[in-house]
């Protein structure tokens, strides 16, 4: 009898790419639940649409590229992109906007580059930025959290999403919007006058819990060793540090540390977006730099720029820089006194 011949090792860990992807999806649940609680059924409609569109686009492109559809759909990377995009878009967004977003995420940002593992940019963030630039009105209409008003009913929500019929008074300023439009109010004034803060515990009504949910999911992923701590910790640390440096309570002041950390897309970005291994730096040192720069950019754009939030822009900018960071952060190998540069000439 002839036995099969294969290369060592013959033992393998039970880990698999689909398991990694599913774990990531699982970890979004606490944050997603918080979003559904505070912003209503629109979040569920978002997720349903993004998942449907993304998987559809993925399958269609795989068909066109003559790749085994089932094999690649089962890596669940499109599902992760869909969930992240669905959570990033404002609830009650029109369906066609979600359609365009999914197209850009899957077809343009991912498959045109060669599919999973070959995309230089985070697909969900590409889609988000394309939509933000193309449809600024729709993209900045966030629902007001449940404790500041009534949430739309299911039928209202569906009509809004599919026909565009406006719902009265469902949207409101996010905590970061509130700071952006603070006119000449001091931090203390903002906290007492704006309902989004006056109704909150520590960072912004609703948003603080959503971010706490994503933090929880992120810690779960860290515990499961899905990614290393370097990038998220570095990003959050730099963001916190910057907001402390620029905080003085006046009308020119930065938002307080907790507001920066627990509002907008901070936690979603820190644990679910910048940890996307494909588009980030590869070494641990590189990830520290990658995350730190994102934290810095997020603060700079939030505080000095025109946009209230900046995670998507920062991530994309640093995606550009990832190969550059890799170039300078090749780790030292065993038996070498110093790390080699990636382009160093080798004696052949």
């Amino acid at each position: 009898m002839s036995f099969i011949s294969q290369s060592s090792p013959h033992a393998h860990a039970t880990n698999s790419t689909q398991r990694v992807m599913l774990t990531v999806v699982l970890a979004t649940i606490p944050g997603a639940l918080a979003m559904v609680y505070f912003f209503g059924v629109g979040v569920i409609i978002n997720l349903t649409l993004t998942i449907g569109f993304c998987l559809g686009f993925e399958a269609a492109v795989l068909y066109l590229r003559k790749r085994p559809i089932g094999f690649y759909l089962k890596d669940f990377s499109a599902l992760v992109t869909a969930v992240l995009l669905g959570l990033a878009l404002p609830p009650y967004s029109p369906w066609w906007m979600i359609f365009v977003g999914c197209f850009f995420a899957i077809v343009v940002a991912k498959q045109l580059y060669g599919g999973l593992g070959f995309n230089p940019f985070n697909p969900a963030m590409i889609a988000y930025v394309v939509l933000l630039i193309s449809f600024p009105v729709q993209m900045t209409q966030w629902a007001a959290p449940v404790n500041l008003g009534d949430l739309p009913s299911i039928s209202e929500a569906l009509t809004k999403v599919f026909t565009g019929t406006a719902i009265d008074g469902y949207s409101g300023a996010t905590p970061l919007d509130a700071f952006k439009q603070s006119e000449s109010l001091t931090v203390a004034d903002i906290y007492s006058q704006k309902p989004i803060f006056s109704e909150a515990f520590f960072a912004g009504a609703g948003w603080e819990w959503v971010n706490a949910g994503f933090l929880l999911g992120g810690l779960f992923l860290l515990w499961r060793k899905i990614f290393t701590w370097h990038a998220p910790v570095s990003m959050l640390a730099v963001l916190a540090l910057m907001s402390i440096i620029f905080y003085d309570g006046s009308s020119e002041s930065s938002a307080p540390v907790l507001t920066h950390l627990f509002s907008g897309a901070t936690m979603l970005g820190a644990f679910f977006i910048i940890t996307d291994p494909v588009s980030s730096a590869v070494s641990n040192k590189g990830r520290l730099i990658f995350g730190g720069c994102i934290g810095l950019l997020v603060f700079l754009i939030r505080h000095f720029g025109n946009y209230p939030d900046a995670v998507a822009f920062s991530v994309l900018l640093m995606n550009f820089a990832a190969p550059f960071i890799d170039y300078y952060t090749v780790p030292r190998s065993y038996g070498h006194s110093k790390p080699r540069r990636a382009t160093e000439k080798v004696d052949v």
């Binding site: 999973l116 593992g117 070959f118 060793k225 291994p277 590869v282 070494s283 641990n284 190998s333 065993y334």
Partner: peptide
């Protein structure tokens, strides 16, 4: 084999400190 997602688990495991 599936595509490499550059998760970096291999770099964590490498005893020679390679990438």
């Amino acid at each position: 084999a599936q595509p490499c997602i550059r998760c970096g688990l291999c770099a964590e495991a490498c005893p020679a400190g390679l990438l």
